[in-house]
């Protein structure tokens, strides 16, 4: 094995490790967005929710010294912000896309405003589990330090796939999101189902935000999210509104995000910013790939406004 082989191998390890590390916020936001969109609404404000989650989680951890409490507060903050979206969209003739965009801007602004005093102090990090006891390679060891939230997200994806199919709640949510007429005929309260779907989605996105500030990169600053919440919305389309596919898609986006730093570890620093833009290219490619003038996307909830 010559030196070139080793370095490419370590790029691969670094990308995989990066994918696992970076994908968690994508995963939580996309699962949350899946839940919201399955109910028939798009919440573009999840980027704002993500940032508010990151800020509030970090602040809580700084003040209490308890990172898990930070995660909970982040989720609750996300749910509260999404409740605004849910309530405003429940008014007649309100466009959910427009409300989402204003919520996105409001959420990031609010987080920057409230988060100013927390840029300097450092918060306790969330713990991780070491899955690399079998290897002596430092690269493998760093790649396989896996955060509990990542594992929780994976289990949540499986649970959501099961729940959407097997619980009454899941069927109700999908009915409301797919055909308002049918839902009305079945006597469901459409607004309430959508409200719960949006709030639950916001909770998950908030938890995703706390991962950013409490684990990776593990600080709070204003450039923390860099549009991951918006990309997660594109990712939901790519995953065809399927929670398990959201998991795979998150890994793919995480891997793309980790590409630049991974190449840097083996000394390739030219075009660093170009590689850094990989997830954005991927988002564009996904959207172009999935667009069609002729037919609606397979699996898309019928009442989602991008589908009408």
């Amino acid at each position: 094995m010559d030196a070139g082989d080793i370095s490419w191998w370590s790029v691969l390890i670094a990308v995989i490790g990066g994918a696992i590390r970076v994908s968690t916020p994508y995963l939580f936001v996309s699962l949350g967005e899946t839940l919201t969109e399955k109910s028939g609404r798009v919440n573009l404000g999840l980027e704002g929710v993500l940032v508010v989650g990151a800020m509030s989680g970090y602040a809580t951890a700084v003040l209490t010294g308890e990172p898990w409490l930070g995660v909970l507060v982040a989720g609750l903050a996300g749910a509260a912000l999404s409740l605004v979206h849910a309530l405003v969209c429940s008014l007649p003739r309100v466009n959910d896309i427009a409300v989402g965009i204003s919520l996105f801007i409001f959420g990031t602004g609010l987080a920057f405003f409230l988060g100013k005093p927390f840029i300097n102090p450092s918060a306790p990090r969330l713990p991780d589990i070491d899955f690399a006891w079998w290897s002596s390679s430092p690269q493998v060891q760093s790649a396989l330090k896996i955060n509990i939230l990542f594992i929780a997200g994976f289990i949540l994806a499986l649970f959501m796939a099961w729940a959407l199919k097997t619980t009454r709640w899941g069927l109700m949510l999908r009915t409301v999101g797919d055909s308002e007429e049918a839902a009305k005929a079945l006597g469901y309260n459409i607004l309430r189902v959508r409200m719960l779907g949006t709030v639950a989605g916001g909770f998950l996105a908030g938890v995703g935000g706390s991962y950013l500030s409490l684990y990776f990169p593990g600080t709070w600053n204003e450039g923390l999210s860099s549009g991951q919440g918006l990309m997660a919305v594109a990712l939901v389309i790519f995953a065809r509104w399927d929670p398990v596919r959201c998991f795979y898609a998150s890994l793919l986006f995480g891997g793309a995000t980790a590409l630049g730093p991974a190449l840097q570890t083996v000394g390739i620093t030219t075009n660093y910013y170009l590689y850094g833009a990989a997830p954005y290219f991927l988002t564009l490619a996904v959207l172009i790939y999935s667009s069609s003038p002729q037919k609606a996307l397979e699996g898309a909830p019928g009442e989602v406004s991008i589908n009408r």
Partner: peptide, 8 residues
């Protein structure tokens, strides 16, 4: 007009 849910 059908009142079925297409994605189910």
């Amino acid at each position: 007009h059908f009142t079925l849910i297409p994605s189910m």
